[in-house]
Design a protein around this nucleic acid. Structure first.
Length: 267
DNA sequence: CACGCCTCCTGTGCGC
DNA sequence: TGCGCACAGGAGGCGT
């Protein structure tokens, strides 16, 4: 659920707290559910955090010693300082006494320490598409990739390859805004332009409201995002389309819940 | 090589 | 009341 806007909101709170902080020691859940849940986190001990950046849904913190701390919130991950409950899966003990805690009920999140820029351990990050709000997100290339793929458009967006950071919520929102059927395999130049603009608009609005909170997502200060009440498609199945009044339909596409307007969004 | 399907995980909410 | 089960989904792996 944490997608680009949620991760960016977390990043903005973490950056001033962590930049310049030294990591004294680390702790990870000794029984990781997944073999790669935590990768070489111990290598962060004794290093100083130089900043907190973001690519797509990944938080990237360069460390001294040419290392990099890579963090992904998965479905239910969040960061809090000095938190103590049974869902805390990892901790960074800072030299100033604070403890950065990674809480993750469903354990889909990941933390890794790698040589800076070496993302072989994280193939999705290594092959990540451009940031949607940057100049790197070229309409020309985006349209070309949409024309070339044989996937349905929504699963293609979720692959993180044509653009970074789009997850289930904002994919539904952007496709609704661009009036494109999520299962469409034919997205021409005009519709690609609509989708390109819609992704940027949806992402920018959600960042402004510090993300969408349904249940688990919260920021480092414990607050919720304010974007949930602005959602038009995601989670709105059975309610009338705000554009045409037709009841929004919920289906499963590529194994993901997908809500769209059967009238506005045609294949 | 690209695509699609399955799995990981656990709390929640529903039906019987 | 209590149980069982479907459901939520980001990323990775694997089969076709």
């Amino acid at each position: 659920m944490p997608e680009l806007p949620e991760v960016e909101s977390v990043r903005r709170q973490l950056e001033p707290e962590l930049t310049g902080a030294a990591i004294a020691e680390t702790w990870c859940d000794p029984i990781p559910a997944m073999p790669r849940e935590f990768h070489d986190v111990h290598r962060a001990a004794g290093r100083t955090i130089l900043g907190v950046g973001r690519r797509g849904k990944f938080l990237l913190a360069p460390l001294t010693g040419d290392l990099e701390l890579v963090m992904h919130l998965g479905m239910t991950g969040s960061f809090r300082f000095d938190l103590d409950d049974v869902y805390v899966r990892a901790r960074l003990y800072l030299a100033d006494g604070r403890v950065l805690c990674f809480r993750d009920v469903r354990r889909f999140g990941r933390i890794a320490v790698v040589d800076r820029g070496d993302y072989r351990e994280l193939p999705t990050l290594a092959a990540l598409g451009p940031e949607p709000l940057s100049d790197e997100f070229h309409l020309e290339r985006f349209a070309k990739e949409l024309a070339r793929t044989r996937s349905a458009v929504k699963p293609f967006l979720l692959s993180q390859k044509p653009v970074a950071g789009v997850g289930n919520i904002y994919a539904d929102e952007a496709l609704w805004l661009a009036r494109i059927h999520p299962a469409s395999r034919r997205v021409g130049r005009d519709r690609a332009a609509q989708l390109h603009a819609a992704i940027r608009e949806v992402m920018a609005g959600a960042i402004e409201r510090e993300g969408t909170t349904f249940r688990d997502y919260q920021m480092v200060n414990g607050e919720s995002g304010r974007n949930a009440s602005f959602l038009v498609a995601y989670g709105q199945g059975g309610r009338p389309c705000p554009r045409c009044g037709t009841l929004l339909r919920k289906v499963v596409l590529g194994g993901r819940g997908t809500t769209y307007c059967p009238r506005c969004q045609r294949a």
